[in-house]
């Protein structure tokens, strides 16, 4: 039995008076592909934002590769993690955003190679080389010197993926990465994610509304409803054979 790469232990998260996550327990094995589905407001995005340290849990622990993400040991006591500790632990995690969040003042190539050079202290030549290879892989080898504003939404999202992949994360988070795209551009982005998934080594957590895609890519699907994991299992168990009524009425809206 392999050790999980990510573990959520009784995670609660509130925004003001609203409790968004009400006790999430979750194990993700290395290389496992997990899709999180559920109605909007169910807390799916919050789960991955907690893991990326964009939000802080109200209570509970998140363990990444054996290390507690939000807490650190200080003189034998567990205290809130400082920025240095967060930087150490979240180095294993990468994220792709719904709205791409590319750096508009940098070229496509610079978008990809800045972090390896400055965060991972790679030498410039290697970082450039690897960035070019990654951009070629997502089909943008001819756009290296373009700026994000010159690309379509689908191309931007592929750059965002290359930018995250160059950092070689052990866990990659996808936050509704096709939701902001025009329908005809969704396919090219999903295609790239499929390719990444096939390569295998990296764990992936995908928050998505693309059910067919989840069925195709995910080893495990979680149905999140009102802040709890209401249903989980293999993709076919959850999406095709579940008896959960709320899940069925949720899925019905996607089959229309």
């Amino acid at each position: 039995m392999t050790e999980p790469i990510v573990t959520f232990q009784n995670i609660h998260k509130s925004f003001g008076d609203v409790e968004v996550l009400k006790g999430i327990n979750l194990d993700i094995k290395p290389a496992e592909k997990v899709a999180i589905i559920g109605p909007s407001g169910s807390g799916k995005t919050t789960i991955i934002r907690l893991l990326m340290t964009l939000e802080k849990p109200t209570s509970g622990d998140i363990i990444v590769d054996g290390k507690n993400l939000w807490k650190m040991d200080k003189n034998g006591k567990l205290v809130d993690a400082n920025e240095k500790h967060l930087r150490q632990v979240r180095g294993d995690i990468g994220m792709v955003f719904q709205h791409f969040n590319l750096f508009p003042h940098m070229t496509i190539l610079e978008n990809c190679m800045t972090a390896p050079i400055h965060v991972k202290s790679e030498d410039k030549k290697t970082a450039k080389q690897r960035s070019i290879e990654m951009l070629e892989k997502v089909g943008l080898g001819d756009k290296l010197d373009n700026y994000p504003s010159q690309l379509s939404g689908g191309q931007k999202q592929r750059v965002a993926m290359a930018r995250a992949l160059v950092m070689r994360p052990k866990v990659m988070l996808f936050d509704e990465v096709t939701s902001a795209l025009d329908p005809e551009l969704v396919g090219e982005v999903l295609e790239v994610i499929r390719d990444i998934a096939k390569e295998g080594e990296m764990a992936m957590i995908l928050v998505t509304h693309e059910m067919d895609f989840a069925l195709d890519v995910a080893d495990k699907v979680l149905f999140l409803d009102e802040g709890v994991i209401a249903e989980q299992g293999t993709a076919s168990e959850v999406i095709e054979h579940s008896k959960n009524e709320r899940l069925q009425s949720f899925l019905k809206r996607f089959r229309a």
Binding site: A115, H118, V119
Partner: peptide, 23 residues
């Protein structure tokens, strides 16, 4: 500067000074 730019800096694990100077 959009919120997403701060979040992307975090996701790429920039240090505080790198975030300010580069992004």
């Amino acid at each position: 500067v959009e919120k997403g730019q701060w979040e992307a800096s975090r996701a790429l694990n920039f240090s505080t000074s790198q975030k300010w100077l580069k992004v």
